[in-house]
Simulated scan of single mutants.
Amino acid sequence: MLRAGIIGCGGIAERRHAPVLGKLKGVTLAALTDTSTDRLAELGEHYNVPEDDRHADMDSMLANAELDLVHICTPHDLHVGQAIAALESGAHVLLEKPISTTVDEADRIIAAAEAAGRKVAISHNQLWSSGHRAVRRVVDDGSLGEVFFVRSEGFSARHVSGRGINQDWRTQSGAGGGGPLIDNGYHQVYKAIDIAGPPTRVFARIGRHASDIEVEDTAVVMIEHQGGATTSIQVGWCAPGGSIRAEEIFGSTGQLRVGGESPLRLWTHERSRWDDVELEPEVRDELGFPPLVQEFLDAIVNDTDVPEAMSAAASRQTLAVVVAAYESGQSGQPVEL
């Protein structure tokens, strides 16, 4: 039985990490650490973690809990130090996205994993979601022809508040490393790379227009891909009245539309109509997280590489796009990758 620990008992640990670790076979949620004693008690009692295994100090948990793996669910700026500490303690690591706030930090995590002989995975969970798996099937079977454009737009009224001591860390430049682009937009970037291929150049307009926060509230990003495709991403916390989410993929012989009248619809030149695409059943709000964790556990048990899509190298590539977008937003010029 694998023993898992969680660093950070905030909202994402409560909604996704702890429930999944509590349900999957072959693993037990053995220890928790958080600076909030209230959060430690709440999650610890709910998931039957013994009081002696609820630690207010991360180093204490890593030294005493005899863990096989650690899930890191903390503000972005803490990822690098906590990941390296967990790896050096002998644990495998599953990090919430993003892997870190800088490419240099990502490289340090990768180097620490290699030195320790441990595995690192990043929660690119939406690649495992029922919806995205269906998108991949359509792209892979050739129904769209050659993909040339990916469009992804998602706006909300504000950031998601945390559940810990610092509930608004996402709006703070130090803790978050940025705003909606590095938070929500990170998912949009890795999904676009998965569909359209490796990124080569980035251009962005980024600003703060409707919010009294330290970070941007609006980001518009264009990504050029190695195969010639283009991605347009719009993301922000600037829509107090709400917004209509748009996600579409355009190919030489067809078009996919995510959401709207049905979860996924396909138009092809051959059929000249919209058809619903069948999705595998998925519990609301899981968004691919259980199968991602299961594949990470399988890699640990079987001593195989983690799937490329959740690897530290893949997350470094995603982060490089985000960092380039911030650079472009400041300079007004495109940035080569």
Rank of each mutant, 00 (worst) to 15 (best):
V322P: 02
D303F: 01
E327A: 15
A313V: 10
A314C: 04
T318L: 09
V322L: 10
F289R: 07
P291V: 04
A309S: 10
T318M: 00
V283L: 09
L297S: 02
A324G: 09
G332S: 12
E327K: 15
E295T: 09
Y326K: 09
Q294R: 15
D275N: 03
L292C: 04
V301M: 07
A314S: 15
T304Q: 12
V323G: 05
I300N: 04
L292R: 06
N302H: 11
V335S: 13
Q294W: 04
R284K: 03
Q317H: 02
T304E: 14
V293R: 11
V306L: 03
E308M: 01
V321N: 12
P334G: 10
A309T: 13
P307K: 00
D298N: 05
P334E: 13
V335Y: 14
V301H: 05
P334V: 15
V301W: 01
V277A: 01
P334M: 11
S315E: 07
V277E: 02
D285Y: 15
E295Q: 08
A312E: 02
V301P: 00
G329I: 07
D276S: 02
A325K: 11
V283F: 10
E336L: 15
P307A: 02
L292M: 15
S315Q: 08
V323D: 10
P291K: 07
F289G: 01
V277H: 03
D276F: 01
E295K: 09
L287R: 03
D285L: 09
P291E: 13
A309M: 08
D298W: 03
T304R: 15
D275S: 05
A313W: 00
A312V: 02
V301N: 06
G329E: 08
I300P: 15
E278L: 01
S328T: 14
Y326A: 04
T304G: 00
T318R: 05
A324S: 15
Q317N: 11
E327G: 05
T304P: 01
V301L: 01
V283N: 08
M310Q: 11
Q294F: 08
A313K: 07
V306D: 06
Q330I: 09
G332F: 14
S331Y: 09
E308S: 06
E280S: 08
E308A: 08
L319D: 03
S328P: 12
V306Y: 13
G288S: 10
A314N: 13
E280I: 01
D275K: 09
A299C: 12
D275T: 03
L297N: 02
D275E: 13
S315N: 11
A320N: 04
E286I: 00
G288Q: 14
A324V: 05
E308W: 03
A325R: 12
L279M: 07
V322E: 04
G329F: 06
G329A: 11
E295M: 09
G288W: 03
I300R: 07
V323P: 03
A324N: 10
S315D: 14
P307Q: 00
P307E: 03
T304D: 07
P290G: 01
E280L: 11
V277I: 13
T318S: 12
D298S: 05
V306A: 06
G288Y: 06
L319N: 04
V301Q: 08
G332C: 14
S328L: 10
V335P: 06
